[in-house]
């Protein structure tokens, strides 16, 4: 039987990403990874794209990973894992391996939305039995906070710095979660470490489904977001409560919003504590702030409609 998702039971399980890694204190990525790995009762083999998580968890003779782990390059965590998973299938067919193993790829937003997008798309289309997890901190953090296609509108980064003429990033985020859903894969979800039980349930569900799965998990970065080191979970919660980062899943084409904030907070609650949005509060950038809020509202409305609309497609559960 699966370990119940209670803190009491989970606290008895071994953490598979150990302490002593070199990620910044207060970084959102390690708790995300720990939650993902805690959620699995199966042995997991992971691949990892180049990025903060990768460079900080396996340096020289040390590794923080207690599971088999492979880093290949920046843009190919999905292709690499597709190779691992295929070898597993080959050896299993030949009777050389009998264990049930799950395969999880971890990539940052840069390694997933941008440079690794083709590799991800290809692996999903080919139908490998794997879960791809993007820990989305909204920029290329490892190389010093450069803009990615996941960087939010208006954010200040080192390559779209907020200046007197250009007020930070002028484009909206690429909606990768929906793009992955458009691949027609059986399971796609968004999660946040603030809602650990929702996150872990989604991982569990994903691992029970055969075929390619994708999860996008918001992962606060205090260095890049210019926020307090102890605010990662708070900020990821505000991202959910302002509907900036809706928690939802799309299972076989049916959309379900898994967490609906009782009271939808204004977007500024999420933006204010972050230095990367500081310039948005100057009077000349008011339009941008308004646009950011309008975008969030529109997206949220659309998502709720989508939930309503796809409900009819839900396959009734067998009794």
């Amino acid at each position: 039987m699966a370990t119940p998702l209670s803190l009491k039971e989970l606290s008895k399980k071994e953490l598979l990403l150990t302490a002593g890694h070199r990620m910044c204190s207060g970084c959102g990525a390690p708790p995300v990874v720990k939650m993902v790995l805690l959620a699995s009762d199966y042995p997991v083999v992971a691949s990892n794209a180049t990025g903060c998580l990768e460079v900080s968890t396996c340096i020289s003779e040390y590794t923080a990973w207690k599971i088999p782990w492979i880093h290949n390059a920046f843009e190919n965590a999905a292709a690499t894992l597709s190779g691992v998973e295929t070898m597993y299938r080959s050896l299993k067919k030949q009777g050389k391996i009998d264990k049930e193993i799950k395969f999880i790829a971890f990539g940052g937003d840069g390694g997933t939305y941008d440079i690794g997008f083709q590799s991800l798309s290809g692996a999903m289309e080919r139908g490998h039995d794997m879960l791809y997890i993007c820990y989305d901190n909204g920029a290329y953090m490892n190389t010093g906070i450069q803009r990615s296609s996941a960087t939010p509108l208006g954010a200040d980064t080192t390559t779209c710095p907020a200046g007197s003429v250009v007020p930070g990033k002028l484009q909206e985020r690429k909606d990768l979660t929906k793009i992955m859903a458009a691949h027609g894969i059986p399971y796609v979800a968004q999660a946040s470490p603030s809602h650990w039980s929702d996150l872990m349930k989604k991982v569990r569900k994903a691992l029970e489904i055969k075929g390619p799965k994708f999860m996008n998990i918001i992962s606060p970065c205090n260095r890049g977001w210019r926020s307090a080191a102890n605010d990662a979970i708070l900020l990821s919660r505000l991202a959910v409560e302002t509907c900036y980062w809706p928690l939802y899943e799309i299972e076989n084409g049916v959309t379900r919003v898994t967490v609906k904030p009782k009271e939808k907070k204004p977007l500024v609650d999420f933006l204010k504590p972050q230095g990367r949005f500081k310039h948005l509060f100057a009077p000349e950038n008011e339009w941008l702030l308004k646009k950011a809020q309008d975008d969030v509202n529109a997206y949220w409305e659309r998502l709720l409609k989508e939930e309503e609309f796809t409900k009819s497609e839900e396959v009734p559960k067998e009794q």
Binding site: A73, L91, G122
Partner: peptide
Amino acid sequence: VKTEMILVESEHSAMSACIGASAAGGRV
């Protein structure tokens, strides 16, 4: 043959997948 094929979307992914498969522990 018993070979499992991965018909990838680029040579970059071909070699990436070969690396993953080889590290996994078999002939590639």
